[in-house]
Amino acid sequence: MAEGGVQSRYVKLTKDQGPLEDIKPGELNQPIDVPQLHVRKCNECGQPLPESFEPPADEPWTTGIFGCAEDTESCWTGLLCPCVLFGRNVESLREDTPWTTPCMCHAIFVEGGFALAAATAFFHGIDPRTSFLICEGLLFGWWMCGIYTGLFRQSLQKKYHLKNSPCDPCAVHCCMHWCALCQEHREMKGRLSDNIVSPMTIVNPPPVQEMNSASHSHDDTAPSSAKSSEHTSLEMQAL
């Protein structure tokens, strides 16, 4: 029975079924809590995780931030052309991004700031007001470069589950920019070399053999020892 003694409009299907109440307006639009849907999800992709899943532990960096001499090629590239080294690092981490795009952004922030400061000093001379403008422009460009490259370092740490440094990734690039670029290049270079697939071996099938009446009669007359000596050779070629 509904409230107020009004008879329900629903018909009972069985005798044992109790009286049904009328559905109130908006009652069907209420959210339903399903306990089975309360599962852990990945912070990166949002996929549900199994109950037995345990997040991987943070791994240390394979090389220190001051180990630039361990890879002389990246050391010289980072010292002379840091924009090129940064572009290669981004391309190795994100295959859909060409190295030229981050290289140009890095060149605008760092190399462009140095060029602007040199041009200002050349055309306006060195005086207190000009020096203040030069320092302000350099600090702004360096700060923007630290934020841009620090976001890339943070993505690298998340991908390989690397331990966070005592300082923020942006602060690391602002204080030790060239050393951080070389460390990131060595880290990806070492991890990508571990994922190289070992060379495979290709086995070529034997050539197709045809049999005619003449060869059949010749095989019948040949001794059994000669037949047993014949074998099929396999050609193996390393890929």
Rank of each mutant, 00 (worst) to 15 (best):
V172W: 01
M104L: 13
Y148G: 14
Q183M: 14
N164E: 12
Q183R: 12
C182N: 10
L138R: 09
R88E: 09
Y160S: 00
H124V: 11
R191Y: 01
F132N: 09
L80T: 11
I134Q: 07
M188N: 04
F86Q: 03
N204D: 09
C81E: 02
W142E: 12
T149D: 04
R191M: 03
Y160P: 00
E95D: 11
T120P: 02
L85R: 01
C179P: 02
C103P: 00
E91Q: 08
Q154E: 08
Y148Q: 12
H161N: 14
R129W: 09
G112D: 07
N195W: 04
I202K: 11
K159M: 04
G87N: 05
E187D: 09
C174P: 01
F122M: 13
T130V: 15
I196Q: 15
I196K: 14
P207L: 07
A121K: 08
R153C: 00
G146V: 04
S155F: 03
A118E: 06
P207S: 09
R88I: 02
P82E: 04
T97Q: 12
I134K: 03
Q209M: 15
F86W: 02
A117Y: 03
G125C: 12
P98T: 13
E136Q: 07
P206G: 07
V208T: 14
C167R: 15
G125P: 15
N212D: 12
P82S: 07
L162F: 09
K163Y: 09
M200T: 14
P207I: 14
D194H: 06
L192H: 05
C167M: 15
L85P: 00
S92G: 05
A180V: 01
H106E: 08
G137F: 02
G137T: 09
